[in-house]
């Protein structure tokens, strides 16, 4: 139903009614902003990138195939623009850093015979924590985790997008999740 509504709005835009684009923006603004935020890592830049993504989509609306869903298209534009933004800001260093001290620091878990506190966590508690903690991950872990686990992109796509070998990508994904788990355990320990 929503896809049909999207299609009608987009056809209106293609026929020269730019105000129809508001319906599209209102429907996808949270999704686009979240994707940009999780990649660029702060609200100020995320807002700029998200606006730019919508504007780019509008400029290319004439070539959008209305038989296809809009969501993957705008998501792909957002991911592209967010990664471009990071490249411009950090000249790709964020992906090539070989220093893994941050990983070591985050994932040092005190070995204990006690059961892992993560196992006892309620789903809603985990979601609540994850939403905040993922923002604190270093970029090189946060971006692959966002693209793979949240945006549902494949290894091949991400590897191509970020211009990193598949092995490096898998390492970042693994380490990113380890770091997240360590952060959650710390959070639980602080609360107890």
């Amino acid at each position: 139903m929503d896809d049909i509504r999207d299609r009608d709005l987009i056809i209106n835009c293609q026929n020269g009614d730019p105000s129809s684009f508001r319906g599209i923006v209102e429907r996808y603004q949270n999704k686009v902003y979240s994707t940009a935020f999780r990649i660029v890592g702060n609200s100020y830049d995320a807002e700029d990138v998200a606006q730019e993504a919508f504007l780019t989509a509008y400029k290319a609306i004439d070539i959008f195939d209305t038989e296809k869903p809009f969501s993957p298209w705008i998501t792909r534009i957002t991911v592209n623009m967010s990664i471009d933004f990071l490249r411009r800001q950090k000249s790709q260093k964020w992906l090539l850093e070989s220093d893994d001290n941050d990983f070591q620091n985050m994932s040092n878990r005190i070995k204990s015979e006690e059961p892992d506190p993560l196992e006892k966590l309620e789903a809603w508690e985990l979601l609540d924590m994850l939403g905040k903690l993922i923002e604190n991950l270093p970029t090189k872990y946060r971006v692959p985790i966002t693209l793979y686990h949240i945006e549902d992109m494949t290894y091949d796509e991400i590897s191509e997008f970020l211009e990193i070998p598949m092995g490096t990508l898998k390492t970042y994904l693994y380490r990113g999740k380890e770091a997240l788990k360590a952060m959650i355990r710390n959070e639980i320990a602080v609360k107890v």
Binding site: S19, S34, Q51, L130
Partner: peptide
Amino acid sequence: RVLVSALSTLPDKKAPVRFADAVMNQVL
């Protein structure tokens, strides 16, 4: 399993207030 499932269901963040207005200004 729990972590991956939670990541895939993370709720979206809320876009800033008047975000749609700002986009539409640029679009128009």
